[in-house]
Computed example of a mutant assay.
Amino acid sequence: MTKLIIQIPCLNEAATLPATLAALPRRVAGVDVVEFLVIDDGSDDGTAQVARQWGVHHVVSHRRNRGLAAAFRSGVDRALAEGADIIVNTDGDGQYEGGDIEALVTPILRGQADIVIGDRGVSDNAHFSPIKRLMQRVGSGVVQHLAGTTVADAVSGFRAISRDAAQRINITTEFSYTTDMLIQAGRKRMAIATVPVRTHAAARPSRLFKSVPRFVMQTGITMARSFTAYKPLRAFVGTGSLIAFVGMIPIVRFLWFWSQGDGGGHVQSLVIGGALLVLGTLVAIMGMVADLVAANRKLMEENLVRTRKLEDMVAALHHQHAAQSGTQASPRRKDAA
């Protein structure tokens, strides 16, 4: 039996959530069970109550606002605990077309992809401003390079994830999970596919960031952290080599004047060059240490995946035992975090 859970991270979405839920599919070809999950990220407008009134199967409530990345993590953890084989993430403001969810999950059902990203057609999307289109293209290009993928819309939040991929992805950023997930997935050699999806005009300004410069800065930090975590040698040794190369320039300059008998007046070049050379060497050594840390992290992630799979086996045995004994497992309580 294949279970699909559609999760919706929400922050004060009581007004728009009913329309979003109404547009979600109740049946999807190739899927036996479709359930909804709302993550209330510290809303103060009764979002969680609205979700329950509309029959949402699972509600996770954060006592205070913790951000989009934390809400996404909470949703994935709950969906896995509820036995989801596929997890679809969408927004609570109705930006995405619920009817496109079947297209999102089809590559996973066919065994063609681990993660499927909804491509909003950024270059000609009428709902995006010229500045937003440019930002999306540049950002997606950088993510493609860092992750080694060909995803054209890297920051699209409309995406489907297989159970195995969800167990292997560990979101570490506090800002937005979109680029972090793709860089991890690319470096872990997961199969990533894209499908075109439809969008609607934004019902309100984005709550993810307050200004374009802040969004660019936070996204850049997220991408740099993710890439450094998975390619420390390339990041640190490359940077250290560049610093050392720059340091060699004043050293060569000093040696030239020294060979002409005029080295005494150019000692400062030797000092600056030597300092840069030492700094570059230290940065390269940091890369080697970081690479050892990254290798240890990979082992820890593999152990985490094994632990999650063991939990799946235990849960399956529990349900099997409950079915054989004629009892029903007690329903899960609504989480609060």
Rank of each mutant, 00 (worst) to 15 (best):
F128K: 04
K132H: 12
V105P: 01
P130L: 09
A126G: 05
V116R: 00
I117E: 00
V88I: 06
G118I: 07
A126Y: 01
V142T: 05
I115Q: 11
R133H: 03
Q95L: 15
Y96G: 11
T90L: 09
V122N: 08
D100H: 04
H145A: 14
R133Y: 07
G121E: 01
V138T: 06
R110I: 09
T90Y: 04
G98M: 02
G141M: 03
G111T: 11
R120K: 08
G118E: 07
V116W: 00
D119S: 04
D124N: 10
G92M: 02
E97A: 13
T106K: 08
V138Y: 06
R133M: 03
I131G: 15
I117W: 01
R120S: 13
E97R: 14
G92Y: 01
N125V: 04
I131L: 13
E97L: 09
V142S: 05
I108K: 03
D124E: 13
N89F: 08
I131S: 09
M135H: 12
Y96Q: 11
S123A: 15
I108A: 06
G94Q: 05
Q144H: 07
H127P: 03
Q144D: 10
D119Q: 11
G98F: 07
Q136M: 14
V138K: 09
L104E: 01
T90N: 06
H127K: 12
V142P: 09
Q144E: 04
D119F: 06
H145Y: 13
S140W: 00
L134N: 11
N89L: 14
P107V: 07
G111A: 12
R133E: 00
Q112R: 10
V143R: 00
E97F: 09
Y96K: 14
M135S: 12
L109H: 01
Q144T: 03
L134V: 11
T90R: 07
V138L: 07
G94P: 12
R133V: 00
L109W: 06
R137H: 07
L134P: 02
P130G: 09
E97W: 10
V138G: 06
H145G: 14
T90A: 13
R137V: 08
N125Y: 02
I115S: 03
V138E: 12
Q136Y: 14
R137I: 01
D93S: 10
S140R: 04
R110Q: 15
R137D: 03
Q136K: 08
